[in-house]
Structures are given as structure tokens and as C-alpha cells.
Design a protein around this nucleic acid. Sequence first.
DNA 1: GCTTGTGAAACGTTTCACAGCA
DNA 2: TGCTGTGAAACGTTTCACAAGC
Lengths: 238, 238
Amino acid sequence: MDTEDAGQQARAEHGRLNRNGRVPIPAVRRLSLYLRELEALHQKDRQTIASRELGNLLGLTDAQVRKDLAYFGQFGHPGVGYRVTELIAHIRSILGTDRTWRTLLVGAGHLGTALLSYRGFASKGFQIVAAFDNDPAKIGMIVGTPPGLEILPLEKLEATITEKNVQMAILCVPAGAAQQVADRLVAAGIKGILNFAPQTLNVPEDVSLASVDLALRLEQLAFHICANLLAAERHGQQ
Amino acid sequence: MDTEDAGQQARAEHGRLNRNGRVPIPAVRRLSLYLRELEALHQKDRQTIASRELGNLLGLTDAQVRKDLAYFGQFGHPGVGYRVTELIAHIRSILGTDRTWRTLLVGAGHLGTALLSYRGFASKGFQIVAAFDNDPAKIGMIVGTPPGLEILPLEKLEATITEKNVQMAILCVPAGAAQQVADRLVAAGIKGILNFAPQTLNVPEDVSLASVDLALRLEQLAFHICANLLAAERHGQQ
DNA sequence: GCTTGTGAAACGTTTCACAGCA
DNA sequence: TGCTGTGAAACGTTTCACAAGC
């Protein structure tokens, strides 16, 4: 069987092959950025856009844009570019955001409660259907944008996941509790975790994990500021 | 002049060269992860650690760990491994977190106020010295962990940056306002921005930018969940 | 024995350059 | 003419494998 041919046929819409048999992960990340730009363009009633211009908006080359999109199908129109609404629909379908995702949140601290009020989630199809904490003072509170959500005790975690058929979880607990809660989420059938705890998590291969360590991002920023300053000095001296 | 020799001498502690003359960006990102693990090990009074074990903690190979660290110097001890406190000090020095960074925050919405209370920043040396919003209802409020910080009007942005010698900014304003505020920050001399607005920002080359789009992270998670489910199906069929 | 640091090979990603199509 | 889709080349990153050191 020829990988180059039969493989591409088989996977249809959800990801073509490179030599390795996979779509490059950086390409998947950029897909979200393309979608974000395309949605902004759609707001401005823009009908079509060329790879060159879409790339410029994001600081990428035109070839990069075309190759990224080509991993998933032939969405462009030679001589015209990409039709905005058409491409938005394709990318949503690829990313899986053409439907609703039932999500839960664990840890109703400062960050957790802020996320319960975050509008950006719902508008992309992520619906937070339950929120948990183990602090008795918080349990029973109604949090988030009205009508709001009641903070439930952690004991109800497993039952809620099953009953409400929850697919992904947002983890905002302290680092020390993160692995333990993650284990319970996985055991209860959760297939994806967005982790905000500054802690490495171990999850089985069939569970997806994305981590956001806010302090770590500032740390990286600090490094790059230092590097930029040094580069500027070198330029100045020369 | 031989790049391989003279270049390495010249840059001393802050980044050695690969063929391209730069430290790989992924290596810099992992440096923060190594630091996080090392700090946890230090808490547990661990004295030394081998590249193999440090890698295992993060799902990386031993060679990766050694190569990453070797970009910045010779920190290991053959037959022994890396001394934990020693390596922590080196990495902090490399990342620039062996000192305090004066930071400001713009946009005191749900996320912004949550970040003002986030303990993880201060413990890494990031001190938020001022907070801004343009909503008259919020201006004057005291927010964050006691003693707290007064929300200032946006007009005072430039003056505050100069007076308090602020080096980096956290941007939590709505997408529509983000570029405009970023421009003001840059003009006022800010050298690094951590952007939480779901919006592409353009900043000059000498300003560092890190972006965190929370909805985008969930979107990526959704994709990987879909991909995992498809992979499982294929496995099951075969 | 065990562990680092590092050239060289393998691998993955991006860019180039152009055939093909509107 | 303008633009996409795509092999091939260039580039960057990771892994391998081993000399050198404790």
C-alpha cells in the first residue's frame, strides 16, 4: 500500500499526511490563528483573501499558509485566494469547533472564577456545565455570568461527568492537588484537560493535555527581553 | 573569526551558539520547565539529579536535557549529575529571574483582577506595580492581595511607566482595544508584553511579545481529542 | 560503575520555485 | 496576470553514540 496515495484518501477531511504520517503540530497551532484572523475579516465583510495577505497579518510567509491548509484539503481557488466563510467552515470542522463541547472547571479560586465569567469560551462553542471546589466556604456559591453556575463539592465530580457527558476539563487547582484531580478526571472518562496549575501532569496517551503556566510565560518574556537588550548592545557597539 | 570559538567565548553565560548562531527557542522554553521541576526537587531536599531522571519527569530524553543545558554552559558533573541548587541558580540567571521585574497590568476585568491576586507571579520575581482600566466605575478601586493596588485611569499609563521604571506589561483588555494600548505601552518604553487579548499584536522588533489566547488553547485541545478518538478507532478496527 | 558534553546522523519543518489553473 | 498546491531544497531540532571524567 502506498502511503502517499491511499493514506490521503482514507483520512479525508481530518488531516493529511506528511512523510511521517502526521500533520505537523505547529501547523495545527497556526490553524487556530488563521481562524481568528478569518473571523475578524468576516466581521469586516471581506469575501476572499490570498495566502500572502493572510500570512502578512500573522507574520508568516504565503507558502507557510498554503502548506498548512493543504495538509487538510484543497480549500483555495487559484487566481482568487480563499473564500473567507468557506475557509472558516473548513477550519472549524477540522478543529472540531463546529459543535459544542461540554466542559467542566475544577478549582474556583481567583483564576477559576474569572474563567467562569470569560465570554471567549462560550462564543467558540465551549460550554462550562459544572464547577467544583473543595473549599466548604465556596461550595453552593453561584459564580459566573448570569444565570451562573453553582460551585459543587469535589465528591460530585465523577457523577457529574457521567450524567452531563462532559468531555473536557479546565484545571485551576493549586499545584499540589493537580495530579490527584487529573487522575480522578481521567478515571471518570475525561478526554482532554486544560491545566493552569504550575505542575507537570501525567495522563494516559489517549487523554489530551494542554498546559498554561502563567508565571512561566512571564519568565520566557523576561529571557527574551534580556536577549533583546544584549542584541541591541552588540548592534550599537559594532 | 571562527564563529564556533570566539562566539562562544563572547556570549559567556547568556546563550551559546548552534550553527545558526542562536539557542533553539524550544530549548529556552524547556529551561523554564527544568527550573520548575528543580524547584520541586529542591523542596524535597534532593541534592543532585541526572539528565535521565529530569527528562523522565518531563517526558523528554536524557540527551535532550543535556543538550539544552549545554547551550548555556557546563553545569553538570560527570558521574554525579546536576547539583540541584547550583542548576537552579544558573537557570534563574539565564532566564533573568534572579532579580525583580517591575510589571504593570492593563485591563481590570475578570481575568485582570484574577491575575492581580495571583501568587505565582510574585514568587518568581514579577512584581505588579500598577494596574489600569478605562472604566470610571473601576478607577480608584483597590484590587488584589492586600495591601492591594489602586486601579488607575489609562491617562496615567505613560507617566507611571516612566516614574516607576516599569519594564513589562500584562495586557488584559478586550481584543478591540489591544493594539491601541500596546502601541501606547511601546511608545512609553515597555520592552515586553504578555498579551491575553484574542488578537494578533504588532510590536517593533526590540519589544518582546508573548500571547496567551485561552479559547485558542481549548480549541487545540478539541482538535487533539478528535484526533485521539480517530486514532483509537483505527487501532480498534485493525 | 555511572554520567556529562558533543560531533554526526536522523528527523521534522519551513522555504523555494514552479507547474497548473482561473 | 494572479493565485494555489506541491515536490525538492534548505534549514532547524532532536536523537544517537561515544570519548572523557568522576
